[in-house]
């Protein structure tokens, strides 16, 4: 791994990181301010007026009263997949395909560093930044809950929730990264890197809408991801291992392909 390159990636991309932290921070605060254990019953009553299918499609699965499940359902059901996805798509394309497309990658390769080393550094940055994103979300959640609703957050369950959600988003950035390494053309890389995760997200929404369509969700990368069950004490080791396996698989494939391919630089 090249530390110089890692540092340069950070310099070039920290603003993108801050923007997404800011957006998620806003949602976090709105959600936490809105939470009121006594009002939640009223909210539950109101929600019963909506058709159940629509609520499920949006990921707001069941009507919950405790703070941790509330966050898992309302924030992690959809927003914490959709928002970081945009970050992953942008960053994944920037780290490789964009530089190959505009030929600036030639300068990375005209140094005594192998392709493998350079691509590994780029992939490591992608994963590390998603890790940092979720560490920030976790700390933010804990900190803000302790001020607004002291003692109500189940920190351990919330941590587990963030780990699995981080892994799901790492799968997303590795999909974007894989296409970024596969295509020399930035447009194609961005197209597939965005298209495939968006299709998965839509499959997740459609599959959530009714029991008959459940298989559609299960075929997506979100098939194993159930935030409410997760904080309710559901088994997560197997899920986490599967996601980790997919991440390693995609990363290795990206390295292999990039090392072999011809670069029009």
């Amino acid at each position: 791994m090249s530390l110089t390159l890692l540092k340069t990636n950070f310099k070039k991309n920290w603003i993108l990181f801050i923007i997404f932290v800011g957006v998620v921070l806003m949602y976090f605060s709105v959600m936490l301010v809105m939470y009121d254990p006594e009002d939640i019953a009223a909210l539950a009553g109101m929600l019963e007026l909506f058709p159940e299918d629509i609520m499920e499609a949006m990921g707001f699965a069941s009507i919950i009263t405790d703070l941790t499940s509330y966050l898992a359902s309302w924030l992690y059901g959809m927003l914490m997949l959709g928002l970081p996805m945009v970050y992953c798509i942008i960053l994944g394309n920037r780290l490789v395909a964009k530089m190959v497309d505009n030929s600036s990658f030639a300068y990375l390769l005209s140094t005594p560093n192998s392709r493998i080393k350079i691509i590994f550094t780029q992939g490591f940055y992608a994963l590390a930044s998603v890790g940092a994103l979720f560490m920030t979300f976790f700390s933010m959640g804990v900190f803000m809950s302790s001020i607004l609703h002291p003692g109500l957050l189940d920190v351990k369950a919330f941590f587990k929730l963030n780990v699995t959600t981080m892994l799901v988003n790492m799968v997303v950035i590795m999909i974007a990264f894989f296409f970024s390494c596969l295509f020399n053309d930035s447009k194609r890389s961005a197209g597939f890197g965005a298209g495939v995760p968006i299709i998965f997200l839509l499959m997740n929404m459609i599959g959530g809408a009714s029991q008959d369509l459940k298989t559609i969700k299960e075929l997506s990368i979100y098939g194993l991801y159930d935030p409410v069950k997760l904080v309710g004490g559901g088994e997560i080791l197997r899920v986490n291992l599967i996601y980790t396996g997919i991440i390693i698989g995609l990363f290795s494939a990206a390295l292999y392909i990039f090392n072999k391919k011809g670069l029009p630089l």
Binding site: K12, S103, Y107, L265
Partner: peptide, 9 residues
């Protein structure tokens, strides 16, 4: 390089 492109930004 024939067509020089430096790293962005």
């Amino acid at each position: 390089p024939g067509e020089i492109a430096f790293l962005d930004g």
